[in-house]
Design a protein around this nucleic acid. Sequence first.
DNA 1: ACAATGGTCC
DNA 2: ACTCGGACCATTGTA
Length: 420
Amino acid sequence: MAKIIEKLGIEIPQITAEEINDQVKPVLRQMEKAGIKLDCDVLKKLDQKLSLRLLSLEEEIFKLAGREFNLGSPSQMAEVLFRELKLPTEGLKRTKSGVSTAASELAKVSDKSVIIAPILEHRELSKLINTYLRPLPVLVDENSRLHTTYGMETSTGRITSSEPNLQNIPIRGTYGAEMRSAFVAEKGMKLISADYSQIELRVVACLAKDAVMIEAFHAKVDIHTKTAAEIFNTSVDKVTADQRRVAKAVNFGIVYGQTPYGLSQAIKISTEDAAKYIREYFDVHTGIKNYISEMIEMAHREGFVETLFGTRRYLPNINSHMRFIAEAEERMAINMPVQGTAAEILKLAMIELDKKLSTKNYRLKTSLLLTVHDELVVETPAETVDEVAKIVKETMEGVVKLCVPIEVSLGIGDNWDQSK
DNA sequence: ACAATGGTCC
DNA sequence: ACTCGGACCATTGTA
């Protein structure tokens, strides 16, 4: 990166969003071509195991329902649960056609009938089987490698992955680790997974010049614990696990244009409590509060908002008289510069890393494989993995200098699970 | 072919 | 009445 401009204590490369996108494209093409190796045996064994379990769940559900029906049909599911078994629908979300059977809604009546648990487990397993376990092995090439297609047509500047989407491979839940362990390094090679830690919060801290948050990142304290101490009016060392969980949701919500209702749904608390926590948060984080006002005002006045490098998002409906429409775009105005700037930082890191790996002769053996919004996965010979890992980390951390440190956590392993 | 519903990820 | 940003994909049911 030749030129770097300094301003307000930050150093960013002198490059436009358009140039970033032009330069990252060839890197993406190489990543697609490289592909990632899949251990199909792992997936096939898991498929067999879960398919068996699925059958017994189906049997159990039909017995409890008193009849057979199509478990994949939300309308039939609602008919069975709410008309035939007469489960209470009070407090449940509704869809156009009737009562919602989404997992978050069914969880609310899980204590009313023993049929709910097997239904939720059936949903989980059929999702894994139909979306990942069966389709993925079909798509590998003669070297057992899986090639995705990366796209850049998003409203924030994020990169997408499709056919197959490798950005939504399960990681949580009972089978997340096993799913990821099927993504492996070639023999004699290792996978390096490098994650930006809380990149969006660091970005918003700087865009908003929020003094409290900037101080927290410099002090390297646990940001969610710090937030918990603020909104619960306590000290950092007295924060409980549950308080931290609430604070984490608050921090997440900030970047999304949070509403009390949204927060209350996310973590199952009352809207009153949610409103209280958000109020406490903004009392402390005046920088964030002002940032939100500024983005909304900018969107109303100019009709668009933009990222640190100038990616724009136009918001044509922000002055709509239909309040809900306007409010939705206001939330986009809050989120896009944050999400988009984080995306630009990752793209810059990919461009830089690609350069370094080619000039240092790692090129022949080391490849960037995956990009998952705040994470890069690299495949490299085992002998030099530590050396390459150091380059990856330092490149990612140094590609721009924000007003707070950028931290990258590294993992190394024979598969994607071990490398996390 | 398309909309609705639901679910996975960051 | 309705609600937190950005994606992709599977299935059902209707057109």
